[in-house]
């Protein structure tokens, strides 16, 4: 479980996060949603420790990140997997080498065991064996996301962060990636935090949704609650399209 308490973050006098508190639970797909510039990426980067917060607490199962020394943060990060918006695969390595990389850095297993684990992870994300020896640039965006998920789970993380996992993907592939993230979260009982503004994802896997508006946590609930909320900012954001207005109308 990750608990965020009264987090504040400013950049050059611009107060981006204002007293944000939230709980991200184990085995659930926790989503941070909000419009562009609302502060959701800053919140996620602060939780991971890529931004140093001005005040507040970020507790990973009781371990407060801002109090940790860099050495301890590095150790904690070995329990973290992350799926980046652009996949962030190492382009000097093949698909298989990308997934083996965290194992080679941190596991004591021999090469055969590492390769077995990497192949298991790639199989788990439904990636065909013929692509294992290809470079990331030689596979599609959807496949790159799968490889990134496989790399993120290679070391059996306790926490998984996904930054806009569906960006640049077609709706069908997005759905597959969403379900994959959800299944992995449940199967391995991971604390997953997804940063998204894709409403399809929210409706599909939003088990714990946090809405950030102008740096403030404006709402928290799940995908079922979202239809019955009387929050104008949230409704304007979630039900912006005609399609979702109709969905809301039908549901409420």
């Amino acid at each position: 479980m990750i608990e965020v308490k009264n987090v504040n973050k400013s950049f050059d006098g611009n107060h981006v996060l204002k007293n944000v508190s939230a709980i991200f639970e184990d085995g659930k797909t926790n989503m941070i949603i909000g419009a562009s510039g609302s502060g959701k990426t800053v919140l996620m980067k602060s939780i991971i420790g890529l931004h140093r917060i001005d005040s507040g607490k970020i507790e990973y199962d009781g371990r407060n990140l801002p109090d940790m020394r860099m050495k301890d943060i590095r150790i904690l990060r070995r329990e973290v997997g992350m799926l980046f918006q652009g996949s962030a695969l190492f382009d000097s390595m093949t698909v298989l080498e990308n997934v083996m990389y965290p194992l080679e850095m941190f596991s004591k297993a021999d090469k055969t065991e590492m390769e077995e684990r990497a192949r298991y992870c790639l199989k788990h994300v439904d990636l065909k064996e013929k692509s294992y020896n290809l470079a990331p640039s030689e596979i599609s965006g959807g496949m790159q996301k799968r490889v990134a998920i496989a790399r993120a789970i290679a070391l059996q993380p306790k926490y998984l962060f996904c930054d806009e996992p569906n960006s640049g993907l077609d709706p069908k592939t997005s759905l597959i990636i969403d379900r994959l993230i959800h299944d992995i979260t449940v199967e391995f009982n991971i604390t997953t935090i997804i940063n998204s503004h894709d409403m399809n994802s929210v409706m599909e896997i939003g088990e714990n949704i946090i809405f950030i508006n102008k740096g403030i946590k404006a709402w928290q609930g799940n995908k079922n609650d979202i239809f019955h909320v009387d929050n104008k900012d949230l409704n304007d954001f979630v039900f912006a399209s005609e399609l979702y207005k109709k969905v809301k109308h039908t549901n409420s």
Partner: peptide
């Protein structure tokens, strides 16, 4: 392309 961030997140210097 966030590859350095990916290394940092893994706990790599």
């Amino acid at each position: 392309t966030e590859q350095i961030d990916a290394l940092e997140i893994m706990g790599v210097n």
